[in-house]
Structures are given as structure tokens and as C-alpha cells.
Design a protein around this nucleic acid. Sequence first.
DNA 1: CATGAATGAGTCTTCATTCAT
DNA 2: GATGAATGAAGACTCATTCAT
Lengths: 209, 209, 209, 209
Amino acid sequence: MVGESGRARRERRGERRREEILSAAARVFAAKGYHGATTREIAEAADVAEGTIFNYFPTKRDLLVALFERGADRMLAVALQYDDALPVAEALTDRLATVLGFYARNRVYIRAIAAEAWTDPQLLETYVLPRLQRVAGALSEFLRARISAGHLRPFDCDLGARLLMGMVAALMLPIVRGTQEPPGVAERRRLAASVVDLFLRGVAASAGG
Amino acid sequence: MVGESGRARRERRGERRREEILSAAARVFAAKGYHGATTREIAEAADVAEGTIFNYFPTKRDLLVALFERGADRMLAVALQYDDALPVAEALTDRLATVLGFYARNRVYIRAIAAEAWTDPQLLETYVLPRLQRVAGALSEFLRARISAGHLRPFDCDLGARLLMGMVAALMLPIVRGTQEPPGVAERRRLAASVVDLFLRGVAASAGG
Amino acid sequence: MVGESGRARRERRGERRREEILSAAARVFAAKGYHGATTREIAEAADVAEGTIFNYFPTKRDLLVALFERGADRMLAVALQYDDALPVAEALTDRLATVLGFYARNRVYIRAIAAEAWTDPQLLETYVLPRLQRVAGALSEFLRARISAGHLRPFDCDLGARLLMGMVAALMLPIVRGTQEPPGVAERRRLAASVVDLFLRGVAASAGG
Amino acid sequence: MVGESGRARRERRGERRREEILSAAARVFAAKGYHGATTREIAEAADVAEGTIFNYFPTKRDLLVALFERGADRMLAVALQYDDALPVAEALTDRLATVLGFYARNRVYIRAIAAEAWTDPQLLETYVLPRLQRVAGALSEFLRARISAGHLRPFDCDLGARLLMGMVAALMLPIVRGTQEPPGVAERRRLAASVVDLFLRGVAASAGG
DNA sequence: CATGAATGAGTCTTCATTCAT
DNA sequence: GATGAATGAAGACTCATTCAT
């Protein structure tokens, strides 16, 4: 029964080490930006020697890439599924509240990678744009289905999806940026509901605008 | 009696040179990010010697700061004035179309500074946040006034302003980022109108959700 | 059980490396002056990479400061103790010969730092003046005691101390500067004796002027 | 009678300009050292444009050389002539007091060039050493003559001359360095007399030491 | 001759990456 | 695998010097 011991245990320890380093990198990147962060600082934050980082990630940039990889698909899992059984308002509110929760929990990661995604076309095209398009596509699809079902009036669904995503982003910006405390679950639901309400009813006075 | 002899001419040339360098910096920052850009590249882009840059800007960072300063107040001029004489829809559409135009024309500058505004708290707090707050405040004020006038139903105007700004940002993001061509004036007006329409009427079917 | 495993050995090597760099710096400073010396030259003289210097000294100036620190207290140890049991002439000769020896052995260091001490008020005030004052004070004290004991006629001891130090400096200047070979131990003793003889007896003919 | 006007006046004006620049350079070198001084600072201190300096001195270093040249021979004029008609004590005191006066008046120049003379072998060998040797030689000669005349007991005159010069240097160091106020004429005479007194009589108690 | 903007070689310093232990 | 000292390429910035005006 020496069984898993040797190799497996070592592998798990290695995996844990890798995670520690990556999460240390996220914290340091979030605080100082990718360029402002030094591998020495990351090593200190991860409580390992500087050289150890390079046993797990060939270059500093690979830390960034790994953060993108890790984050990208987590987001998809959260942002794609709409519940077709629920009324529009609730289905949307549900999804938005969940997305807000994702942002809130991962705000450090997101802060860490956002500036680089902006600057680095390679990262943008490989990791960010495809995901955003899938998220937008799913949302657009949902809206289209609800129009067909008569739950929504006809409108440009692609544009609508983009605008909804913009609204969510606007809400999360200060939280991700760190200038505002992350909202609790109830607050998130309330925010999501407000957005959905506005999106559905508009703000015009009863009889038009 | 040569007219504006020496001094004045030289000063104007200096001013022009300063502008050339600054605009070269904007282009290089936009392309490679602040950290990715070297002073040598900027000098090449401006077609001057590396040292010349430092005759006009004490440090590389001052190039960035100058870009922020130049951009910040231009934006305010554009985003603050709402026409109280027009109907809500038109007043908003007007403003939004103008803002979209500003983004489109200044997309290179904005691309250049955005990543650093995200990363650098000093720049964020000095240049970006105050302006965003004033823009949001003016919009919020406008909405509040229109509620009082009975043109809009009562709702949380601060939130509404934020969401509107988020929608505009969502529209401009790909253009500023350079992944999409800037829209012409007609297209901008159409986009603005769509946003305003959605904002005012909502997307719900008939008169409910 | 390899004894003083890893850590200790590495620390000692680091200490040695530090010394190598510092002594290389002293040689280059002595040859070209602080400003004339480049970190590249120092690195070459120490046979390390340029960056290695900065693992041991945060800035080039810290090399200079370290040289001052190292030299300053060594000098005090040598210049302060007078033997009260000996006759004046011998006590003084002893001390002077020892000081000459110190200068001769440390001439490279002294040459390295002298110009900067002259130029840099911070270094002068922190390292040089306090030590010179202590040396002068001790010498002055010694003279005063010997006057009380009747071994010397009454005179201004502070002035006398200063003049004695000037004489010693005058002797060592060409040696420190490198335009003259350093004297051996016998020669140093002879020089010291000559200075003391002149200082005690004067040069006037017979018993007057 | 347009006489001297043209060329001569211009030449005199040029000469004056040259002097202004040189004296500005001396002040700035004295304050910051040769390397610490920039041509821009010198230009400001001389109230001319930076380029103007180079109309008078081909390189920055030539400013330094000019300072050496100007100073060197002035010193010789002062330090060489001994009055053979006076008693030893008075002849020496006279000379020393005059030299002290020279140091005091020219302390800024001397401070400016001292560090560089120390560092730069070329300057040292061309300007400083030859002059020092001539000064020492003259002093030595004077002493030798007075020994022959029976005014002084026989001793090593070269050594004696060097020691005397060391004593004078020791007195002037703090004044040249700027840490002590320059002495007035009376004080200088008193100091010179003290030095000479000590040099002639020594400090031993009446009957030996 | 005076001016001062332009020049670019030369410096110190940083930091990702390597590798001997 | 872990360590951290060594490496050296690369970058921001300085400043003596030039030269068009």
C-alpha cells in the first residue's frame, strides 16, 4: 500500500505550490500591475525563492497567461446558462446577480489581468475577445428567444446584449478597481433587479417620453 | 523690423515640437502600452533625438501626465452641457452622439492612457475619477430635472446615470481598443438614438415585463 | 553532518565577494576618481558582472560610503593612543611612525576617498571632520599633559596639534598620491624622528632665534 | 580718431566676457566640484547662454585648465621671494603671512581646483607639482642660506621646507574648504608668527625634552 | 558673436532568467 | 525540486558639444 505515495503525493504538492505562486502573482499584479510587479516580489508573496517560480512557469509572462486561462473558463461557466423556464425578468436577474458575484469574488484576478488585456493584443485576442463574444452571443440568443416567445418587444438583440454587459461592467468597475467594497449577496440581487427593471421598462414617463 | 523676430517664432516652434513629441508618445503608448514603449521608440516616432524628449518633458511619466491633462478637460467640455429646451430623447441623443464623436476622434489618446489609469492610483485619482464624477453628476442632475418636469418616471438617477455611461462605454470599447472601425457621424447618431430609445422605453413587450 | 552546511559557507562567500567588489572600487576610484570611474570598470576590476555590484551595494555612491566607513575607524584605532610611560620624543615618534605606516598601507583607499571628501560636504561632515577632530583632540591632550608634567614648555596645544598633523600630511601626500614610493618601516621611523626632533628642538641656532 | 575703437574695444569686451565666464566657473566648481557642475549652471552663473561658453573655451575641461593656469603663476609670484636683509624670523613670518593672504583671497579658486588636481594626473603634473617644487626649492634655499650664515642650526632643509609647507596647508585647509572664516590681515600675521616661533624654537622645555 | 534647441554617446540601475549548490 | 547569487541586456535620463538662426 505504498500506493499513491511517491509520485502522486509529489504531484499534488507540486500542484499546490503552483497554485500558491499563481495566486501570489495575482495579488502582486493586482496591486502594482504586471510591469510594476517584480518576480522577487511575487516570490516573497508566495514565500518561495525567486528561482522556484521558474520551476513552475517558464517566464513571468506565463504567470499572466495562466491567470487568463484560469479565469476565462470560470467566467464562461457562470455567464452562459440562462434558465428558460423562468420569466424573463427573473431569468435575467438571476444571471446578472450570478455574474456580479463572480466579479466580486474574483475582483483581484480581474484587476490583475485587465490592464494587460487592454495593452496586449495577443492576450486580448486569445483569451478575452472570444469569451466576451460567447457571453454576448448567449445573452443575445436568450433575448431573441424571448422575443419570439412574445416576452419582449422586437429590438436589436446584439446591441441590447452589449448594452446590458456595459451596464453590468459599469456597476462592477469600482469594485474591481478596489475603490468600493464588494456588495453582499442581497445587495447584488438588488442591483441586478434594478438593472433588469430599467432594461425592461425603461425610464420614460408612463405614456412614452 | 522683421516683424515678430526670433523669440516669438522660436517659441511657436517649441510649442509645435512639444505637440509632435506628445502625439508621437500617444501613438506609441497606444500601440505598446506605457511600459512597453521606450523613449527611443517615441523619439523615433517623433523624428527627434532621444535627448530632445527630455528638453520638453522632464521624465517619461510626464508624457503620460501631459496626455491625461490634455484629454481630461476636453472631455468635460463635451460631456457636461445638456440642452434643457429639447425633449428628453433628443437632448440625450444629442449628448450621447457628441460623446461618441469625442471618443472616436480621441481614440488613440484614450487607448494610450486607459491601461495606466487602471493601474496607477495617482493618475486615476487625480485625473480620471474627478472627471467621471462630474460627468455622472451632470447626467444625474439632468435626469432628476426631467423627472421633476414629469418627462421621466421616478427612479434612482445616480444608478441610471452610471448605467447609461456603462452603455456608452460598451459601445466605444472596441473602437477605442482598435478592434473595430470608428463610426461616422450618421452611425454615431443612430447608435445614440438606439441607446436612448432602449433607456427610455425598455424592451419589455407591451406595457409590462 | 557536513559541518557548517550551505548557509554559513554561502554567507562567507558573500562577505568575500563584497570585499572583492569594494577593493576593486577602491582601486578604480583611486585611479580615476569617483566620477571618472564607471560601474562597468569596477565590475571588470572585480571580475563580476555589472549587475552583481548592485546585489551588494544599492548605488555606486554606497561603494564610496562603504570605503569611508571601513577606513574611518581603522584610522582612529591607530591615531589615538599615546604611551604616557615613554619620554615625549619617543611617545610622539612612536605614534607618528605608526600613523605613517597606516597611511602607507592604506594609501590606495585614502587616495580613492580624498577627492570626494573634499568635494562632498555630506561625506566630509559625516566621516572625515569628526575623526580628524578626535585625532587632533587626542594629540592636543597629550601635549597638554606633557606641559603639565614639565616635559614641554607652555604653548598653544591646539595649534601645535594641527601643525603636527599638517607636517605628517605633508610627508604622506606624495606617497598617498602615488608620486612617490611608500617608505619601509625603518624609513618611516627615521622620518617620524626627524619631525619630532624639529617639533621639539626647533631649528634656531644655539638657544634662541 | 576712430583709432582703437573697432577691433581693440571688441577685444577688450571679449577679454572681460572670458573673465566673467571663468570666474563663474570657479564659483560653480567650488560649490559642486568639477563633475557636479554643469555647463548650464556655469552659463547661468555667468549670465550668458550655454553656447557662449564654447566661444571662449573649446571644452569644459579647458575652463579647469584656465583656472589652473591663472592660479599657478600668481602663487609663484607670492611664494618665492624671501627678504635676505631681514632676520630669519621676520623674513619667514613675512613670507608665510603673505602666503596665507594669498590662500585667503583665492580660497574659492583653490577649492575649485584642488579636488581635480588630486584626481587628474595630467593637471597635477603640468601645473601643480612643478609649482610646488619651485616653492619648496626656494624655501629650502632660503633655509640653507641662513644655516650658512649661522642663523639656523644645520638640519635637512628639504625636509624642513616640506614640513613648513605642511603646517601652512594645515592652517589654511578649513578656510579653503569653507568651514572656517578667512582670517584678517592681523590674524594672519599672528598665525604666521606662531608657526615660525614653533619652527624656530621647538616646544621642548628649556633644557632639551 | 550670442543664443539655446538638438544631439546622442555614455551612465547608472533594474530585473527576468540561469544555474551551481 | 528548492535556493538565491550571478548575469547582462535593456532602459531612462544626463549633459557636453554643435550649429542653424
